[in-house]
Design a binder for these strands. Structure first.
Lengths: 125, 125, 125, 125
DNA sequence: GTGGTCTAGACCACC
DNA sequence: GTGGTCTAGACCACG
């Protein structure tokens, strides 16, 4: 349940966090009711600004992945597993779509795209 | 050889331009030695600031796609076709790879990924 | 880590900056991970426009000398020392070569060139 | 006595021309009294703007390398050979000085510079 | 606070 | 006419 952050890779840090929490839930590394590290602790551990943690946690609450436990901290919502799994699926599907659209828009034929896809997939042993 | 810019796209205007010029070269819409529209003309045509065009053209020079003819304008470098074609291929291939890797890492099976791919591709009319 | 700029030098200000940063890295005046002055601070200190600093910093990023820490500033890349040292060496070596080649092509003998070199070097106190 | 121009190498075309004429005189490819190609002819031959030829010829006149022959064209001045030879010498000396100064200013030791020089000179077979 | 992008307008050398 | 550089000032996302 430890997160790895790269502050110089273009993707906003808070987004990296949001994504990692969601994936941890989908992978059942974080389970319903489990408590998350406090903003302060996590900020210190990752050596990043507490505001950034807060922003990520806030977004995870609005996306109904986490919920506050009155005055004690944030926990994984019991109904979030399914949400995270499907959200991840959908997210990936959207991104795949975007890449394919760009391929076609760039002048590649369907055959070229398919061959590229097969090569890429088989390369991922 | 006409470019379409979406200024409210997230992607910086100058990058959209760079990308479109490269793709135009890869598609032989722009051929070796061909002159590009002048900074001022293109700026007026696209209704954006000349500096933005300049920035794109500057980047295309550092990427060896264009070269200056002193006092006359910018032309496509004779050796840039190959560079642009492979650059495009590689750019798209890298992005496709990233998405696929994420799919597998997210727990999808190869079959699921392939089905997702086929659905997405056939959905793009 | 202080830079000296000559705005009436023919050489663009942003290039003077790029060069001085690279040389500072090569001389270990700037070390890996060290933060650079902020665009605004440096602009004020050198009494030049922030955009000009930005341009220099941007080029240093594309040349892989600096990397951004999102929202915090720019730091020297850990692997840039070697790059800067060899780049400096090569830059100077190329220019020296060009001059020597021109000397020989201009009809000077090796002895004349060597004598010219020695005279010039000893004249630089 | 034919000139080679590269319109995309950074050096202004008219300067390339001036330099080549001077060197041709220094090398006795152009001798005293010899007539130069007309602006029109040379412009056509090199496929560059006549204004550029004019600018170069004008500069060569102010530098006392060429002189007009009333209504007939421009010829090499009888006293320009010595001038061109020494001018070339001096030009090269100045440039050598500049490079060496930069080497020292860049933190190289005199020994390093000397070794670089010897390597460069011996490499020019 | 940080850098990144864009606009506006000026000036330059070169052709 | 061309691109290149610089200034000035605005707005943005990010931490």
């Amino acid at each position: 349940m430890y997160f790895s952050i790269d502050p110089s890779n273009g993707v906003p840090i808070y987004e990296q966090l949001v994504r990692q929490v969601k994936f941890a839930v989908a992978d059942k590394v974080l389970v319903a009711g489990q408590m998350l590290p406090s903003v302060r602790n996590l900020a210190q551990e990752l050596a990043i600004n507490p505001n950034t943690i807060s922003k990520a946690y806030a977004q995870l609450q609005t996306e109904q992945v986490l919920e506050p436990l009155r005055g004690r901290g944030l926990v994984v919502r019991p109904d979030s597993l399914h949400r995270c799994v499907t959200a991840r699926q959908e997210l990936l599907s959207v991104r795949l779509n975007a890449v394919l659209e760009e391929c076609l828009h760039a002048g590649l034929s369907r055959e070229e795209v398919t061959s590229m896809f097969e090569k890429a997939l088989s390369a991922l042993a």
